[in-house]
Design a protein around this nucleic acid. Structure first.
Length: 563
RNA sequence: CGGGACGUGGCGCAGCCUGGUAGCGCACCUGCUUUGGGAGCAGGGGGUCGCCGGUUCGAAUCCGGCCGUCCCGACCA
């Protein structure tokens, strides 16, 4: 395709709104443009990449027996009211002119389950149905370009089985298909156990791609194959250096000291030898004391899980009323409400607030001086070791590029998607749901494959295989030769972007670097002399002079080796 | 939703504090010269200064409200 005829609006400067690398480069390369917060148009180049991702996904879905179809975006609210998802804050709701409520879905469980009601017999199972369709989410905060958006295209598939065993098979089929998809896309990624979030269901596997920007944290072990999302990761904290044991807590005066850092500094001890008191309010009224080690951070999600209810930090007034001391001096000893302590505090003695303003207690021991319930409350962090093998844990920012769920009968029951089993009994379909965002795959690819000059697309995703640059100054002959070369490559089945624009070489090279096609072919004065062309591999920046004869074959084999 | 920042030609920004009728670089158009890594010269076009209201003889500039965008957090397949 001739660049002179294409809409490829590259930018010389970084747009000020873009922070994340993928956001910056996709904007600059003319792949995407924003129309509003979290709303992106895919320009021709970006759409080509998106389509390539889509095609890879399609092939792998079809390979496991998936059947592509298409559901509407506009969805009667009734379906969502039946499953209870109508109340989720992120759901976009709207009405038609008659006031009938509709939903713009974030996923299509309800709609697919609605159709699955036509599956009446165990003989028709299992089934895997999928589509590529627009999802909308009223995100509280879109961010990072394609990383978190309010509208995007997702491949979501749904499996329908007789029972848990069938679901397990469908689930593993998807898991393997997802591995193949991400491998084909040239991404570095890990599959990890994860939270199920608003989807509900029992088991879920998250696919995380380490990147320079992202909203998840991938925790991996340097010694074994342990990998998890930070939200559910387990880490063993380094042991603190604890002071001598005391027979009973001893009060020390700590005037004006209200932070762990100050306390540790004042007493000359390891912050890890203190217990941090986090007063929280559960279910709107009950005051609960959560305790973590002084150097740890409370993970509110884990706290909520441990308490079985949402929590919020107590206000200063609530703290004074409940503990009889100022925040900063409170602790477990003498507190009459429920106490939940992190597992790290099970053994040993720690310094804790005395519930008397300006005082702390040394040698506070769980079980002896107060009676807590123990739970995992701390957030794993750098320095932790692997709970499985003791190896060092690594923490990487990552993008969630796919997520698969075992839903069970979460949707089939309320929507009455029932089938008749062999014994004549009616049972709800056992379901799984499986999502992939092609836009996030694009973002992850750019995050993982770029340099200062621009994108270096994995060959499987590049908008074109070869970017042919004609050096116009070399005269009409060079442009003619370049055109011939481009034509031959195209006839040989390669995707070719032919830069025939009347621009200076520097601009053309800069654009080629930005756009990031795997191979660049330059035809100019130098190459005219020996009838060859210069071929540059975008990823490695290695350039070589190649004879024009059989160029197509040569480039093709180069592409193969690049993958 | 809490905290912070920003909104001035297509892009990046200055001007605002200390009111006086809008400027720079890049991009764009025309011509000439140039051309293997974002050229030079000459000429030219393009801006309701986010919106509404207020103060003032006069507002991009001061005041109030609103809207939008980005970043951190909360939240989140």
């Amino acid at each position: 395709m001739r660049a002179s005829l294409l809409f490829i609006p590259t930018l010389r400067d970084d747009p000020s709104e873009a922070e994340a690398t993928s956001h910056r480069l996709l904007l600059r390369g003319g792949f995407i443009r924003a129309t509003g917060a979290g709303l992106y148009t895919f320009l021709p180049l970006g759409w080509r990449v998106h389509q390539r991702v889509v095609q890879i996904i399609r092939e792998e879905m079809d390979a496991i027996g998936g059947q592509e179809m298409l559901c509407p975006v506009l969805t009667p609210a009734e379906l969502w009211q039946r499953t209870g998802r109508y109340e989720i804050p992120e759901v976009f709701r709207l009405e038609d002119r008659a006031g009938r409520p509709f939903v713009l879905p974030m996923t299509h469980e309800e709609t697919f389950t609605f159709h699955a009601r036509e599956l009446r017999s165990y003989r028709e199972l299992p089934q895997v149905l999928y589509h590529f369709s627009t999802k909308d989410r009223d995100e509280p905060r879109p961010r990072g370009g394609l990383l978190r958006v309010r509208e995007f295209i997702m491949k979501d598939s749904y499996s329908f089985d007789r029972d848990e065993e069938g679901l397990e098979r469908s689930f593993r089929l998807h898991e393997r298909a997802y591995h193949r998809i991400f491998e084909r896309c040239g991404l570095e990624f890990r599959a990890v156990q994860a939270e199920s979030g608003m989807m509900g269901g029992s088991e879920s596997v998250d696919f995380l791609a380490p990147a320079g920007a992202g909203e998840n944290t991938l925790v991996t072990c340097g010694s074994c194959d342990y990998a998890a999302d930070l939200e559910v990761a387990r880490g063993l904290p380094a042991a603190p250096s604890l002071p001598e044991l005391l027979d009973s807590p001893a009060e020390v005066e700590t005037p004006g000291i209200s932070t762990i850092e100050a306390l540790a500094g004042f007493l000359g001890i390891d912050p890890a030898a203190t217990a941090k008191a986090m007063p929280m309010v559960v279910a709107g009224s009950e005051l609960v004391l959560l305790l973590v080690r002084g150097d740890d951070r409370l993970d509110e999600a884990r706290a909520a899980a441990a308490l079985g209810a949402d929590v919020r930090p107590a206000t200063e007034d609530e703290i004074r009323a409940g503990f009889g001391a100022e925040p900063g001096s409170i602790g477990p000893v003498g507190f009459t409400g429920p106490i939940v302590a992190d597992e790290t505090l099970r053994r040993g003695q720690y310094v804790a607030g005395a519930n008397r303003t300006g005082h702390h207690l040394r040698g506070v021991e769980a079980g002896r001086d107060y009676t807590p319930r123990f739970a995992e409350l701390r957030e794993p962090r750098a320095g932790d070791t692997c709970a499985r093998c003791g190896g060092a844990l690594r923490f990487q920012v990552a993008i969630e590029i796919g997520h698969i769920f075992k839903l069970g009968t979460r949707y089939s029951r309320p929507l009455e998607a029932l089938y008749t089993d062999e014994d004549g009994s009616e049972r709800p379909l056992v379901m799984g749901s499986y999502g992939i965002g092609p836009g996030r795959i694009m973002a992850a690819a750019v995050e993982q494959r770029h340099d200062d000059a621009g994108i270096a697309w994995p060959p499987a995703l590049a908008p074109y295989d070869v970017h042919v640059v004609a050096i116009g100054a070399a005269g009409p002959e060079a442009v003619g030769v370049a055109e011939t070369v481009a034509g031959e490559l195209e006839r040989a089945g390669l995707r070719v972007l032919f830069d025939d624009r009347d621009r200076r070489p520097g601009e053309k090279f800069a654009d080629a670097d930005l756009i990031g096609c795997p191979l660049r072919v330059t035809v100019g004065k130098k190459t005219l002399e020996d009838g060859g062309m210069d071929v540059l591999a975008r990823g490695t920046r290695a350039e070589e002079r190649v004879p024009a004869i059989q160029a197509a074959q040569l480039l093709r084999s180069m592409l193969e080796t690049l993958r």
